[in-house]
């Protein structure tokens, strides 16, 4: 009897969550996948008999859309610069905050988490002021030290970097507290042993702390990557994709072309292109992680 239940145990643990996900995520995703091969629009939604299957036409069209291609390029730019920055900065910050354990340092946790809980309108207003080309704080400071003003949101490349900075500022908080939680799991005995062996702070960081944070780092890098490939809110709020689509991300493209215009088939096709990209990248991350584990053993 015991054995029987032991075999069943994992299924019992996972089944409530899996059933809910199946119902409200996986089946809807499959439906959306079918929709991506149709010409569904608002008319089709009102009368299902009007929906026509169009094969892969939506997918072909997406890749022929110059703005989609541009958005793809922009997204790659965001991801390549943004993701490593988020990981390094939130880990660095977590280490700094972990340095002291008193009340002041615990207040810092809230401080660095605060961007995540600030209303996005307030964020947009304040940052729009910082980035304002004529009257903004950043350009005012540059002028004080005798430098030329920077077109923060007006130049195609600078605008992308400005949005990355903003997104970085917003993303650090959550990842920082995840790293902080992970840091508590490292047994103090390891550090004590290392100290006895005469290891310095740097050696302890690279040979104990960072390896021990492997699981948290993997989580942060996978979710950050997924999040940044779906980069949306910052360009949506700050630039609406401008100037001249130089900040349009894939997710913004899908939102604008699909949902604002009720072209559900087209939007679904765009979303599945995004989906495939994310799956491939995530699979790659899992493979790399497994390789690392093997070499460690």
């Amino acid at each position: 009897m015991t054995k029987f239940f032991n075999k069943r145990a994992p299924y019992l643990f996972v089944s409530p969550a899996i059933l809910l996900l199946l119902m409200f995520s996986i089946i809807p995703i499959l439906i959306a996948f079918v929709i991506s091969f149709t010409d569904m629009s608002l008319n089709g939604l009102a009368d299902f008999s009007l929906i026509k299957f169009v094969g892969v036409a939506n997918y072909v069209k997406v890749f022929q859309d110059p703005i989609f291609v541009k958005a793809l390029g922009n997204t790659v730019f965001y991801v390549i610069i943004g993701v490593p920055l988020v990981i390094v900065c939130s880990l660095g910050l977590a280490l700094l905050i972990n340095f002291g354990q008193n009340k002041v340092f615990s207040f810092f946790r809230l401080v660095f988490y605060s961007p995540s809980i600030t209303n996005v309108v307030a964020v947009a207003v304040v940052w729009a002021y910082l980035y304002n080309p004529q009257f903004g704080l950043f350009n005012y400071l540059l002028k004080l030290i005798g430098l030329q003003p920077v077109p923060w949101l007006q130049d195609p490349i600078v605008a992308k970097i400005s949005l990355i900075l903003l997104a970085l500022w917003r993303a650090i908080g959550v990842n920082m507290i995840i790293f902080l939680a992970a840091l508590q799991g490292i047994p103090k005995a390891y550090y004590e042993a290392a100290e006895l062996d005469g290891a310095n702070a740097r050696q302890r960081l690279f040979h104990i702390t960072i390896p021990m944070l492997k699981f948290a780092t993997f989580f942060v890098s996978v979710t950050t990557l997924i999040g940044w490939i779906q980069f949306f809110e910052e360009p949506f709020v700050m630039t609406q994709g401008g100037p001249l689509d130089s900040t349009t991300s894939l997710a913004l493209f899908i939102y604008r072309n699909g949902f604002q215009l009720s072209k559900f088939g087209y939007a679904a096709a765009g979303s599945f292109v995004l989906f495939v990209i994310i799956i491939l990248v995530t699979l790659l991350q899992f493979r790399i992680q497994r390789k690392q584990e093997e070499t460690e053993l």
């Binding site: 608002l42 008319n43 939604l45 009102a46 009368d47 009720s262």
Partner: peptide
């Protein structure tokens, strides 16, 4: 529209009229 349900009277922004009219809603 998708569930063929909803209210009796709807206030619609003038720019939304064409699409919901065309959809037969």
């Amino acid at each position: 529209v998708a569930s063929k349900g909803g209210p009796d009277v709807v206030q619609l922004g003038t720019t939304w009229m064409p699409e919901f009219q065309k959809a037969g809603a």
